[in-house]
Design a protein around this nucleic acid. Structure first.
Lengths: 152, 152
DNA sequence: ATTATTATTGATAACAATTATCAGGTAGGA
DNA sequence: TCCTACCTGATAATTGTTATCAATAATAAT
């Protein structure tokens, strides 16, 4: 069984436990989330689900994602006015590296975060519940595409 | 001369250099930004400016902040759907610690970030231009206010 | 100081992502 | 199979922010 199949089953199980009904649209949305590597937007999920269920409404996608957020099964990455991106495979906070040109988002390996977090608790007395760490830059691909001499 | 006076003069000077006109409303907005410690929202800046200039429009506040962002003189902290908060005193990216109860934002001291950033460049080949690091939690004050036995 | 130019202001309309509403449909238990 | 509550789909409402535009006022030139 592939990773994304396992992840899909896990999400379906979580929903069942909460007494949610398992509809075909819901499975399709969970499916897209479990199989995508690239932190899709709602719009992107919507487009993919519509291939299978052409009558699907955008509202349905939003409602399901909202439910998954409450269940802690999806991580939302909001970016100001731009539409949010979602991670259905690693729902716990982790660092992201975002290309500001092509909007690609990748998960770098960084484990020095825990130390920082512990340091903060000592310093401030906060009870830390979550965090968000994003690095913005230009990926190797997009650096190559830049015209010579072009700045930015 | 106080710190915030110096900061105010710096911002006015930056504006002049860009050929911007120095209006009373503009000075008032810069004044609020330079003197506030608590990362104000647009709404909060608006309220403060209106005390001095009651006819001020919200649009004017937005336009001035937008201009300051372009000049690199103010740091915007967006939080999804909630309204953004602004730092006019430390416009370069730095970590924040946010109380999810009272919405207070403080600037903790953390300098291990540079190492992480350098590590990322090596690993991924990205050209990193900026970053964002936020910790969410409950501040000592709000921990005290929680009712005994109350969770979350 | 007066005038001309043009950025800025203030009021409001427009916008875009997300959320709420609600009638009709359907999953899942009796 | 039938019931009932949840879910879907279509669309209206919401909210923070941006665009529009006529009137105003800051600056440079006279």
């Amino acid at each position: 069984m592939t990773d994304h199949k396992i992840r899909l089953e896990t999400m379906i199980q979580k929903m069942r436990e909460k007494g949610c009904r398992i509809t075909p649209q819901r499975i399709a949305i969970l499916g897209v989330l479990s199989k995508s590597e690239g932190h899709p937007s709602v719009e992107s999920i919507y487009e993919q689900v519509k291939e299978e269920f052409p009558t699907t409404s955008l509202a349905t996608v939003y409602k399901n994602i909202s439910m998954l957020k409450e269940l802690g099964e999806v991580l939302e990455l909001g970016f100001g006015t731009e539409s949010s991106r979602y991670d259905g495979n690693k729902p716990d906070p982790h660092p992201h590296l975002i290309c500001t040109v092509c909007k690609k988002i990748i998960d770098p390996d960084l484990d020095s975060l825990k130390d920082i977090s512990a340091e903060l608790v000592d310093e401030t007395g906060f009870k830390i519940t979550s965090h968000r760490l994003d690095f913005f830059g230009i990926c190797p691909d997009c650096q190559g595409k830049q015209l010579p001499g072009e700045q930015k």
